[in-house]
Design a protein around this nucleic acid. Structure first.
Lengths: 335, 335
DNA sequence: ACGGTGGCCGTGAACGTTCACGCTACGGGT
DNA sequence: ACCCGTAGCGTGAACGTTCACGGCCACCGT
């Protein structure tokens, strides 16, 4: 297994700083000075070194470099599946946020991985901090990450590491007001999970509506997928033919419900108002555009990255810190 | 700037292999043997070492490790913007494909970066190969990447590095047949770019239709964005009120056109059949689901990653190799 | 008793880079 | 003439790990 394809001859090992130094007739340090725009080098010498470097296709080794000055920092980002429209939004924000601070992002995807555990273990070997949604219990995470700063997004009941929480209650109140103002009288919740066990955000909607004197029936979809949303939408229409507003677990399920409504010939928002949750960009691609409880992903990412980097620098404890980002009501065309 | 938060006391530097060796009363090499499941170590010793390592929160330095054995390989993936539904599909496939081969993926996003050039330059310092859609000319790419194996997706007119091409002609023929079989007689192309300069895939549609004796008028949208698709859709309806089939530049524009059609009260596919291009997952979220010219992103990624890794290993020339992946017609509900 | 064979473990060297110094030559000031 | 500062460059050392050896001991066979 040949290490790297060098620039000069095929099969030749990649050039090192010493090769360049010899070719230019100078010392290692002078090459360093030339490559890194450091002072204390004559222009002519610098040019000569740079020419030699180019000639030999010299590229400084990130390992040699990383070894001496601890600069080359990397955050490991764990998502479930980029094909799920939720994660790109997070990933995009994390990548920007990390880059702004001079960090790189290594991406790991748990959905298609055979072994979650070893996936995260490998990631932890390559990264200085880990952020995201690993499908790991606290115990497993502690085992695998062994000291690597770790920030969970949407931490929930987990406790190991830090977390960023997305709060929905206030915005849910706004949504309830919004729906009632528009005249909805028979709202239904399309939740996800097990019937009888409302999700946190589902419960939040029920409570918000109850506070306003409206009792909301619930229909429960099996999973938070598109097809599940379609099935849930159909079931909901069958069980509550007179529904005039639907709040769904998230935007993806809302899209599914919208398809069901569309196929049933139900006008949105004319006959039924429909709202989702997460604020996905996806909601702008469907017709009508989806009203949703959005969360500023840039704020989430900024918060998560900031916390992880703080942990790395020892300024934030590795345990028990939680940040909170609030959802807000984003009214679009579907309500 | 404290390097890394160690496990023991705050402010203490991270433990090295030597710290562990001393704590366990053995040598470096024995620690290595214990950590890497190598033979030639007694079980009792191994346990003692592992305990010491855990106690000190020891994590092997990826730099030290990478320096000696050239293992820890990384592909740099360049996308424009993960918020654009096209890129997650590619990124997801590349990440899986790379992981299958034991490589990591560092993600870079050009859209939000202030300086494209330095973004790619930084990426090239961290990665062993670069794959993707850098917004760089051949000259710039050559300058920045200086010898790093480079594979462009959708290479087009560029020549530096390798490329993966996505061919559309055959599938476009299938689409033309499909539309004609369903009885469409007045198809219109909703292209993107400058009026009078059809895109490659736009031209492909025109040609396919011409081959079948149908002349297709073109409406041109300003950019390949959703809003541009809406505007284009409206313009198209105004210019060709009797249209009965629309082929769009891509799925995103198709979604925009679908919104325009929806708002104009035009039934799809009843009165107008609508097709997109790219095979985005997005097309399944809208109603009706979008017929599209899909490309197997896993094949594209597999091809790109394979090529880049081949270049790295010196088995594939760094220049002039092109792989081709064909689109195929994916009939869904919109036609 | 002696050579041989493995199991277990330790020691130098190497990987490629930067940091902290040290050295030389030259120029200007007194 | 002398000293001193500085520009320009070079030399050890250090970063943390693994590889290639080599040493020691116990055990086996003859």
């Amino acid at each position: 297994m040949t290490p790297r394809a060098g620039g000069a001859g095929p099969g030749s090992r990649p050039a090192t700083i010493i090769d360049v130094a010899e070719a230019a007739g100078v010392s290692r340090q002078t090459v360093t000075r030339a490559m890194n725009d450091m002072p204390g080098i004559k222009v002519a010498t610098k040019e000569r070194v740079l020419a030699a470097a180019k000639e030999l296709a010299y590229r400084p080794s990130r390992f040699g470099r990383g070894l001496v000055g601890h600069t080359q920092r990397t955050v490991g980002l764990v998502v479930d599946d980029l094909m799920n429209p939720y994660y790109p939004q997070l990933a995009s924000a994390v990548v920007s946020s990390a880059r702004d601070r001079g960090w790189n992002v290594i991406l790991a995807q748990t959905a298609k991985a055979a072994d979650q555990y070893s996936l995260i273990a490998d990631l932890a070997k390559q990264a200085d901090v880990v952020i995201g949604y690993p499908a790991l219990t606290d115990t497993q995470a502690q085992e695998v990450l062994a000291g690597v700063p770790f920030v969970r997004i949407d931490m929930g009941e987990y406790t190991y590491g830090g977390g960023v929480e997305m709060e929905v209650d206030d915005a849910m109140g706004d949504l309830a007001d919004h729906l009632l103002e528009r005249g909805s009288q028979r709202p239904v919740l399309l939740d996800v999970g097990l019937p009888g066990f409302p999700s946190a955000r589902g419960q939040s909607f029920l409570t918000a509506m109850a506070d306003r004197g409206v009792r909301v029936p619930t229909v429960t979809a099996a999973s938070k997928s598109l097809s599940s949303g379609v099935a849930g939408g159909n079931a909901l229409l069958a069980a509550h033919p007179d529904v005039d507003a639907i709040m769904t677990f998230n935007d993806i399920v809302a899209c599914g419900a919208l398809k069901a409504l569309h196929e049933a010939g139900v006008d949105v928002p004319g006959r039924v108002r429909l709202a989702g949750c997460d604020g996905l960009n996806l909601g702008r691609f469907v017709s009508p555009e989806l009203t949703t409880l959005a969360v500023d992903m840039n704020a989430v990412a900024e918060s998560a990255v900031g916390m992880a980097l703080g942990m790395y620098d020892g300024e934030v404890p590795l345990q028990g810190v939680r940040a909170r980002v609030a959802h807000h009501l984003l009214v679009r065309a579907s309500t």
